[in-house]
């Protein structure tokens, strides 16, 4: 195929020949390319829908206490399990708390923990991936086998193991946000490192890496200043995809009581508290569940667009 798009990108800005004849033809500067990429992303309807939903939940996380009609932990409303009404659009839960207020304020823990865990996982994974891809050989083999072993354990099981280990010696389970971030971040490291490693493998043998070595560059410079800027595409894609997973993981762990403790309005915890009575009062379970689903779907909508544009 004739890479026609490529030709358009490669329109030279300068004209070969004696300096006098060199004129500016087109300015296809990188900032223009970046702006073009951004424009392409913003033009996508899926991305816009995802972004609106995500921004809504971010607003709830930041300003939930002002937005929510009631105090989320006020259990003075009656009767418990009241069906949705004008006063309480999402009804009341078992102990008579306003579900709408709890869903709004409950966004906070997920919105803080998930991106931080993703950032940690992507950072660690990228570094490991760079090291494995760049050095190859036994470094790659040893690290690769360890990561394979970690990958063999399901994500949730791994997280629970780590969290339990962290709270050993304490009474009951008391998980802080920091612990959640670190544990999920570590659990995300292997898959990220694999993606980055394969991207690095494709770059490692290109001549510019050789050229860097031929001017006496050390390995860290070659990895971080030469190769890393060329593998940002896959890293960004990985980050957006991981963010969706992170939300889901945080919610799941909270549901399994590895997270905020009652009376916190956290979504996963709400579901855990209410789901036994779903036949009596579906609203107390369904609305927080919908909240989780909407956020995960919204992030994945954005991730899809980013992936399409980056991989083009």
């Amino acid at each position: 195929m004739t890479g026609i798009d490529e030709n358009v990108h490669a329109v030279p800005i300068l004209v070969d020949g004696p300096p006098a004849a060199q004129t500016l033809l087109h300015l296809d500067s990188p900032s223009r390319v970046r702006r073009e990429t951004l424009r392409q992303i913003l033009r996508s309807k899926t991305f816009i829908i995802g972004a609106i939903i995500t921004l809504f939940w971010i607003a709830c996380a930041l300003f939930g206490h002002w937005i929510a009609p009631y105090n989320p932990i006020d259990d003075s409303f009656a009767p418990s399990y009241q069906a949705p009404s004008w006063a309480h659009p999402m009804g009341l839960d078992r102990v008579g708390r306003d579900v709408l207020s709890r869903v709004i304020v409950g966004a906070r823990s997920v919105i803080i923990v998930a991106p931080a865990a993703m950032a940690l996982g992507v950072t660690l994974g990228s570094m490991l991936g760079l090291v494995m891809g760049y050095f190859g050989g036994w470094v790659d083999n040893v690290l690769g086998r360890i990561l394979d072993a970690v990958l063999a354990i399901p994500l949730i099981v791994l997280a629970i193991l780590l969290l339990t280990a962290l709270s050993a010696g304490q009474e009951g389970i008391n998980v802080t946000s920091w612990q959640l971030i670190i544990v999920i971040g570590i659990a995300f490291t292997p898959p990220v490192s694999r993606t980055v490693r394969s991207a690095v493998l494709a770059e490692r043998d290109l001549d510019y890496v050789q050229a860097a070595k031929l001017r006496g560059e050390r390995a860290p410079y070659v990895m971080f200043a030469e190769i890393l800027p060329n593998v940002t595409g896959p890293i960004i894609v990985e980050a957006t995809v991981r963010l969706g997973y992170a939300v889901f993981t945080v919610a799941t762990l909270a549901f399994l009581s590895y997270g905020p403790q009652p009376p916190s309005p956290d979504w996963g915890l709400q579901i855990a508290e209410q789901y036994a009575d779903i036949s009596l009062a579906w609203w107390a379970t369904i609305f927080p569940a919908l909240a989780i689903a909407s956020l995960v779907v919204a992030i994945n909508l954005m991730a899809d667009t980013v992936q399409q544009v980056v991989e083009e």
């Binding site: 490669a10 030279p12 800005i13 300068l14 070969d16 060199q22 500067s29």
Partner: peptide, 18 residues
């Protein structure tokens, strides 16, 4: 024999010969 402003460009903005 490249003009000075070539310094600010990245490879994508240059032809094969450049």
């Amino acid at each position: 024999r490249l003009p000075e402003r070539a310094l600010s460009s990245r490879p994508t903005g240059l032809s094969g010969g450049q």
